[in-house]
Design a protein around this nucleic acid. Structure first.
Length: 255
DNA sequence: ATGACACTATTTTAGTGA
């Protein structure tokens, strides 16, 4: 089974690019973030034609998440209770004995902004939500907007304390790990300096100025099934003249 | 220090992103 997470930065603007990726990589289950559309404007037919069922939690213009599955979806859930005012940022489903959820965590804007406090609260509620599910085989994936360790930032320790790199944000990420979730990429690639996001501006991608903020987190039974995890850096580049998202997909292959 | 690029919205400029 192949699973993946990808912040696509607009599903409608990215549709032809996503189609190429799905046909080339053939994932079974995908968590998408920043689809930036409500359900009425979602390109349902494109995914049906490619063989995917869609579980969607969208809103107009901003945020929005979806799960794509080639396997039958047995059950689904949308939204993080009590956090509705933060937008459409969580969706999940039971698929093939797996609880698969994907999230687009709030950005926080700046350390002084009220949204930063909201980001921390949202992450607290996410950990509470996940723990309450008592998940056996489970994956929680998405764009967490947190850089877990210095090695995950192109600026290394020089970025410590900046937004995405604060003790407060890192402690929330660590709480998810403490709740039994493993960072699948880091487990399989303990020493890699690898990024999943690069700014569109200033040639950040070619200069290697990136961050690792997109994760596939898995419960212990899932970790035991993982063969390999990779960041699909090739799909951060233009394809057939089409503009890429500023995030690369992260892919894991499970037994 | 600032901005750089890309997306969306009853678009023609502004807000957001990380």
């Amino acid at each position: 089974m192949r699973v993946a997470t990808w912040n696509v930065n607009g599903v409608r603007a990215r549709l032809d690019f996503i189609r190429i990726w799905l046909q080339e990589r053939r994932p079974d289950i995908v968590g998408l973030q920043e689809i930036k559309t409500e359900a009425d404007d979602f390109p349902h037919s494109t995914f049906e034609e490619l063989g995917y069922e869609v579980v969607l939690h969208g809103q107009k213009g901003w945020n929005g998440v979806a799960v794509l599955s080639r396997l039958p979806v047995e059950d689904s859930f949308r939204g993080l209770a009590g956090q509705e005012e933060m937008g459409a940022r969580l969706v999940g489903a039971s698929i093939g004995g797996l609880t698969f959820a994907t999230v687009y965590c709030p950005n926080g804007k700046s350390l002084e902004h009220e949204d930063f406090v909201g980001k921390l609260a949202w992450l607290d509620d996410l950990a509470t939500f996940w723990s309450a599910q008592n998940v056996g085989q489970g994956i929680l994936c998405g764009d967490f907007n947190v850089v877990p360790q210095a090695v995950d930032s192109w600026r290394g320790e020089d970025a410590d304390g900046q937004i995405f790199h604060t003790v407060e944000e890192r402690s929330r990420f660590d709480a998810l790990l403490g709740a039994g979730l493993a960072d699948l990429f880091r487990e399989k690639n303990p020493d890699s300096r690898a990024f999943s996001w690069w700014d569109y501006r200033a040639g950040a991608f070619r200069f290697g100025h990136g961050l690792r903020i997109d994760f596939l987190l898995g419960t212990p039974p899932v970790l035991a099934r993982v063969n390999q995890v990779e960041i699909d850096r090739d799909f951060r580049k233009k394809k057939e003249g089409l503009t890429a998202s500023d995030h690369a997909p992260v892919i894991a292959d499970l037994d």
